[in-house]
Design a protein around this nucleic acid. Structure first.
Lengths: 191, 191
DNA sequence: CGCATCAAGCTAATGGCATTAGCTTCATGG
DNA sequence: CCATGAAGCTAATGCCATTAGCTTGATGCG
């Protein structure tokens, strides 16, 4: 080995810091190199190119979310687990809006692998509702849609009237939990 | 006036066509100019810069969605309107994935104005459920989260097993409709 | 102890892109 | 018939990502 200096992980860390502080438009290799105290081309010793750096960032973000969500559901089950999970997910997106927006959802291997950790958590949580294979898949997709939709919109500042957002999320949580208790084929109750 | 040639609207149209065909990375001013049969700097006579072009594209996309969703709910009410609305929304995202991903949700005036049209449709649809001010705001936010979450994930190819996606969306629709019928404070039913 | 190796850094160069400056042209209104 | 101004052009600038090829210094082996 040569000098133990920069590493791919360190470059990703610096890039994430830059993303947090200055937003996605400021994420350039020059800026990352500047913070790393290195000339721009030196970054190519650790990362194939900007696209790969973005992939690595996305994977790290997905892993962080999996860590936090996984931590949050520990010791909870069923409705309580859903609440904990939804709270933790939103919490991440609120506190790291640029990171959340930088998530890549297309089937890129690195992020997909981290995403699988998250899926495992969702499936495990739904087990408390007695959902089997196919039903669980559909339920997990609905859960993902709800989680991602609210988080993405809030992270991008798409909601106005911020003082009532907690209430809205409470309603959404309620809707999800109710949905998980309602059999698939049941008709809607009368007004 | 001078020669009636290009216009801002035409530039936006060409840009959207390019986005559809070659994806977001291919959207450059050079490429747009090439299709327009014009030198790159000439575009600046119609559009302030690339950022504004993106804003205009986003506004047009939002208006198109509002048109299609608005058309879809015509003549329907309550549950049927929700179904029509959700179907139309997903339909747009499926058929124009790059456009859907290019939507800007931050409060940019042009897109926001188009978004207001869409919000009006959602509020009008919820009126059938007897929702008043605050309740309607929270319900619309939940609806937006559900719609956008599923559409964004599907448009980005985040779901596997494409053959069952219709079923998943059916479940999501069912969950939303059930949620709209369930009073806010009601406890979840027992298993 | 000395040397070959090679990872990690560097400078220089290339090409694409967005953007600006300033010139040209031509349809139109008076 | 001419002045105007919108819409086009070429030329130039500067930033960025990326590649090529050189330099250096720590390390492992003889």
């Amino acid at each position: 080995m040569a000098r133990a200096a920069l590493s791919a992980d360190a470059v990703v860390g610096i890039a994430l810091q830059l993303l947090d502080e200055k937003g996605p438009d400021a994420l350039t290799l020059s800026a990352v190199a500047g913070r790393a105290g290195v000339a721009t081309p030196s970054l190519y010793k650790h990362v194939r190119n900007l696209a790969e750096l973005r992939d690595l960032m996305s994977a790290r973000i997905m892993n962080d979310i999996a860590d936090q969500v996984g931590q949050a559901v520990l010791g909870h089950s069923a409705d309580e687990a859903i609440r904990a999970l939804m709270t933790a997910w939103r919490h991440y997106a609120r506190h790291h809006p640029h990171r959340y927006a930088a998530l890549l959802h297309r089937p890129e291997p690195r992020t997909a692998q981290a995403g699988q950790r998250l899926l495992d958590i969702l499936f495990a949580t739904l087990r408390a509702y007695g959902m089997t294979d196919s039903a669980a898949i559909h339920a997990v997709r609905c859960l993902r849609a709800v989680l991602h939709g609210f988080a993405a919109l809030e992270a991008q500042g798409a909601f106005q009237l911020p003082e009532e957002l907690d209430e809205s999320y409470e309603l959404l949580t309620h809707m999800v939990i109710t949905g998980l208790h309602t059999p698939t084929g049941s008709p809607p109750p009368p007004a």
